[in-house]
């Protein structure tokens, strides 16, 4: 029984003609799998390797380099909330915002709330500095996230 559905396999294979090497599909494949499963289990790594004519070790090597991918033991919640802590946000309350969010959800950065709905992460500069402090919700930026907006945001993400 494979972890990757036929649909996921087709999605991955659709990237192959774009590149002169199958290995170049590694990042797209990892994104496709994680978007669907909220993590990249070892079985999926083996199956991606099989699709791309690679060793599972090569796929794992790439996956483990990038901070974005999660293994099966640390799956993402339904939403991923990145709180920016780099300089432009840090000067306007980014660290305090991260603290506040973590306390409200009773997690450490990287952790997921008990109801499985929100994973909190610290982010290095997300390029939304004109709206510091800023956060990313999955991959969409939300600007000017002052402390008074935190409760409403978490409420929205829990829905």
């Amino acid at each position: 029984m494979s972890v990757l559905t036929d649909e996921l396999r087709q999605k991955i294979l659709a990237y192959v003609p774009r590149y002169p090497s199958k290995q170049a599909v590694t990042l797209p494949a990892l994104h496709i799998v994680q978007d669907a499963l909220r993590c990249v289990p070892l079985e999926a790594i083996r199956e991606i390797a099989d699709l791309l004519d690679l060793s599972p070790a090569e796929v794992h090597d790439t996956m483990s380099f990038y901070g974005i991918f999660r293994d099966k033991e640390h799956p993402l919640g339904k939403k991923r909330l990145w709180v920016c802590r780099s300089l432009a946000c840090g000067l306007r309350g980014g660290d305090e915002l991260l603290d506040t969010v973590c306390k409200k959800l009773k997690v450490h950065p990287g952790g997921t709330s008990d109801d499985g709905k929100i994973t909190v992460e610290f982010a290095e500069c997300i390029g939304a500095c004109e709206g510091a402090p800023a956060v990313l919700i999955d991959d969409e930026a939300r600007l000017n996230l002052t402390p008074d907006k935190v409760d409403a945001l978490l409420e929205e993400l829990r829905r």
Partner: peptide
């Protein structure tokens, strides 16, 4: 890959 902190013009 605009990732230099404080930079957002490419975005």
């Amino acid at each position: 890959d605009e990732s230099e902190p404080c930079t957002f013009n490419n975005r």
